[in-house]
Nucleic acid binder design. Sequence first.
RNA 1: GGCGCGGUAGCCAAGUGGUAAGGCAGAGGUCUGCAAAACCUUUAUUCACCGGUUCGAAUCCGGUCCGCGCCUCCA
Length: 468
Amino acid sequence: MALRFYNSLGRKVQEFTPIEAGKVGLYTCGPTVYNFAHVGNFRAYMFEDILRRTLELCGYQVNHVMNLTDVDDKTIRDSQAAQLPLDTFTRQYKDAFFEDVDALRIRRAHVYPAATEHIGEMIKLIRKLFDAGVAYQAEDGSVYFSIAKWPAYGQLMKIDRDQMRAGVRISHDEYAKESVADFALWKAWSEGDGDVAWNSPWGKGRPGWHIECSAMSARYLGPQFDIHCGGIDNMFPHHEDEIAQSEAANGCRFVNYWLHNAHLVVNGEKMSKSLGNFYTPRDLFAKGYSGREIRWVLFGTHYRQTLDFSLAALDAARASLQRLDAFRQRLAEAASAPEAGTAIAAERAAKATADFQAGLEDDLNISAALAALFDLVRDGNRLLDEGTVAGPAAAAFVQALETCDQVLDVLTPAPGEGVPAEIQALADARQAARKAKDFAQADAIRDQLAAAGWTVEDTPKGPRVKRL
RNA sequence: GGCGCGGUAGCCAAGUGGUAAGGCAGAGGUCUGCAAAACCUUUAUUCACCGGUUCGAAUCCGGUCCGCGCCUCCA
């Protein structure tokens, strides 16, 4: 089956064809580093991670670029409030971002260009826009993109600008624009910016928000590339403006496939601090949830569907992962047994792998992919119960699991999730008691283990210790 | 007002014309010293509602109700 995606440009599912065979240029809108990213932000990055890993599973060599917005109204405002230089202020949130990315097992992009390190590219791009006749400097000193001069504007949203609500778009500091729909390319310095400023042919100032993505994507992926992702809220105006800037400046198609993820809500309500349902990954770690549990919840709903996040969903994720862990452990144990049932195991494993990949190739249908995975678990467990998967036969299942895990990356418990020696010692003592038919003692030790957060399962191969 | 998304079992969630995947939770059974895990069986005559098209619709068309997002910084 061919790889297909829902392209926001055109609004339909299309077969994916890269510009260069076997390679994919992928640009994903990254965080504004003025605070810790929350699970809603990570929903987007998780979708992009699944996308990238799916592309890689399909054999593509992906060049993934994610920007870091480290200068804008919010970073300036909050750095001043914190009485820190802008770069010092944003540094701590960049660091935190990468910690969270790693904890959630999101594969790092190949390049993380920061806006403040690419001001030169942005200035060059704005020059080109002047050359193209679509940019102008207003009386307030800021430079704007003139939508009136660019008829192709509105490819993503099919916006009828006359229908937009009058009034709401005029913000206090942008009344100098020729048209309310025009957007800033370069913002003239104002007192509120403090020492945050760069020199430009249009005077001291800082870049507009949209220009960074146009400039940095061109720098690392070229003027035309394959896929651009972001949250659905970014379709307008951010991505619309990027298209206008890039295509007006470079004279070629900007992006072939636009993929947008839907939002995340918590218990059906928009996540907000006032509702007390605002979560960052580190909030959840503090509650005892692991990165892979959060990961499971974040990728478990199709990316174009609103995701309802909740602690209950995390608990369900824990149960699902325990089932997968147990299966993996059983396979590992079976691998050391004499060979049995190779043919059927290989057949089941091959089917699961194929179904898993086919699900993802169909516009990242994660539900179909997970169904294939759970079919594999059920089939595998049944065969293990029957004793017909052992030795090399178990390897086929392990390999299928590992293939799925190339995309999911949840099947390996974190380091530190292993069994401590003292817990193992208790389990051994309990087993000795059982052997001696001293069940009262055995049960007492089991209670002791439970109190320590561990459970023990008796199997034909001996006790198996697991975290509760 | 414009653009867009959704309403499928207790919960989460696939399925866009051929007779309801999968997960979590629940019930019964097998297994077990007892458990747990695993497996088996079971849990929607039905897909918000009303009409229509069709041999056949959760899926297509028309209408109604409800929830949500964007249009302003936003994943």
